[in-house]
Design a protein around this nucleic acid. Structure first.
Lengths: 338, 338
DNA sequence: CTGTTAGCGCCTTCAG
DNA sequence: CTGAAGGCGCTAACAG
């Protein structure tokens, strides 16, 4: 591999000139610039990232931390984050926490502080105090989606408001027997949005003067169609407490609930209304009314914020930006006919 | 951030000793080793990746190229690849090709050759001659899943065999009117496995003396439930050519087909048998008979191969490893009753 | 506008 | 077993 000295020699100039010609900054005569570029091209010269980093302190690389990559929320966010970062000239190195706790630790204490990244993005990662400390010591900008982290700029939706909005929609449609399916998964990896959504659900019921019943609440172990299916069957089969509407805390659960209802001979939305959260592509296909949280929008905003911080570390950015949610009404909800 | 000199000074030794103590190699007295380790720990010393790379030439980082990250196959593979690589002490930097062609070009000509990675893994990425050339110039090991790349070690399933096996299963169950849904998506980003699967399908029909009909073949634009649904409706509604069985070239398509059949009043598997490919988690839930391609197994093997190559570049590895597929029979296929 | 000169932080011979 | 010295490839002053 040709180095900068090879280019310099071949072009008959100094390495400093080569550096200037190729970086674009600093004054340089158009002629030599063109010459250097031609030679560099011909020799297939590519600057060494490590040498560049060593001297400038900048890596042009962003560390992105995710709890998993093969789950909808995270892969969706990652897709956008990566795309936007690449456009801005950054590489992204991925730190996936699903490898286990010991590796998790080394990610925070070794990998991230290794001066391999200019900033760190956390996609809905719940971190311990110690981990936040480790990160802070790196002294690099930190931005996050999904939950507040001390010392980081964060973007998140108001999950309480989301749960409330979904439930209010159901109430406005005349429903009063409204169940909720949520995941109380004990997962230390990521922020559990569930409790907030449930709080919103209960708030809406309370505002409407409806007394929540324990039997209306089903907890599942993960956000999967199969789980929503099983939970809905339980809910709908209950002879005393069967609901006329279900609020599922994710669209995947909602799809499962819809399938369960159909298998039980119920028609949607006549016999049962369902609303989910996410605006997952599946909810469009299945016609599920949902709360759109626009992951791609959040992710794009996250990158934007990070770029601002990188550009000007003193830039004023709110510690927490609340991303708006909206209700998307489709064919899974309808007025209750009694 | 403490550097190696800080540790050396604090421990009262030379930087060379610190380096030796921490790297573990070379002779060093247990006492000084312990001392250095204690000091390093106390000072929160973390070696700079770029300095390390600059002098050793090694990065402890692997470049992983994917066409998309938010699609099942790729996110599944990425999850395993990352997990295994982290276990082996490597970071992963992600090169997502979905950012557009100009960025794609710079990934191959700039990012990858920048000496930021020790090796490159391509997850089902179709590359042009020029791109392969760029990569080859990096002179680093290249391993791939999904399709042959000159100069790279590759793992792939035999897609023709997969299509044949699926179809043969249907034939063995007594079916002769067998349709196929596949994606002929023109996507330059990744290897199109579809044509091979179709070839296998046709081969099986031919072997059984069945003449394929054009009307049995439906092409869709992408691997999505919605597409499988639409295609199956067309197939099943055809008054002259309605099949009794469908081979879908992915499980997502198969799920769509199943849903379409149900909506049309058909019961699975009595009125229609369906087989997919992937062993996607959905196929388990929906009880779809499928061809398991074991993405996680392929990905793990890929990492293993790469590690061998990194360990010993002369290591003998076949240019192409054929990953076995197996038929998983579930409840979406049954003997044809006539 | 361009060349010279120092390092960036670390590993690695080579001496001791 | 340990220290001194050189250099990995590049950029950023500082001179010219």
């Amino acid at each position: 591999m040709a180095g900068i000295v090879d280019v310099a020699r071949e072009a008959g100039v100094s390495t400093a000139t080569v550096s200037r010609a190729l970086s674009g900054k600093d004054y340089i005569s158009p002629a030599t610039k063109a010459l250097v570029e031609e030679v560099a091209e011909r020799l297939g010269y590519v600057p060494s990232a490590s040498a560049y980093t060593l001297v400038t302190g900048r890596t042009k690389n962003i560390g992105v931390v995710v709890p998993y990559v093969d789950r909808w929320f995270f892969s969706s966010a990652l897709e956008t984050v990566d795309r936007e970062l690449v456009k801005a000239g950054y590489d992204v190195t991925l730190y996936n926490l699903s490898s286990g706790d010991d590796h998790r630790k080394s990610i925070f204490t070794k990998s991230l502080p290794r001066k391999r990244v200019d900033a760190v993005m956390c996609i809905s990662v719940r971190m311990s105090e110690a981990e936040i400390q480790s990160l802070a010591k790196v002294n690099k900008p930190i931005v996050a989606i999904g939950g507040p982290i001390a010392g980081a700029k964060c973007i998140k939706i108001d999950d309480t408001a989301a749960g409330k909005l979904a439930t209010e929609h159901l109430i406005a449609m005349g429903h009063s027997k409204i169940a909720m399916i949520g995941s109380s998964e004990i997962d230390e990896k990521f922020f559990d949005v569930f409790n907030e959504r449930r709080a919103g659900y209960e708030l809406a019921l309370k505002d409407a003067g409806i007394t929540a019943r324990d039997a209306w609440y089903k907890s599942v172990s993960k956000y999967a169609i199969s789980e929503g299916y099983a939970a809905a069957k339980q809910l709908l089969g209950d002879p005393h407490n069967a609901p006329t509407a279900i609020f599922a805390s994710s669209d995947e659960l909602a799809v499962g609930a819809m399938l369960a209802a159909k298998d039980m001979g119920l028609t949607i939305p006549n016999d049962l209304s369902i609303v989910g959260v996410d605006n997952h592509e599946l909810s469009d296909f299945f016609g599920i009314t949902t709360i759109n949280q626009n992951v791609h929008g959040q992710a794009a905003q996250l990158v934007k914020t990070m770029l601002q911080l990188l550009d000007d570390p003193e830039h004023e950015v709110a510690d927490q930006l609340e991303w708006p949610v909206e209700l998307i009404v489709r064919s899974s909800t309808a007025r209750l006919v009694s």
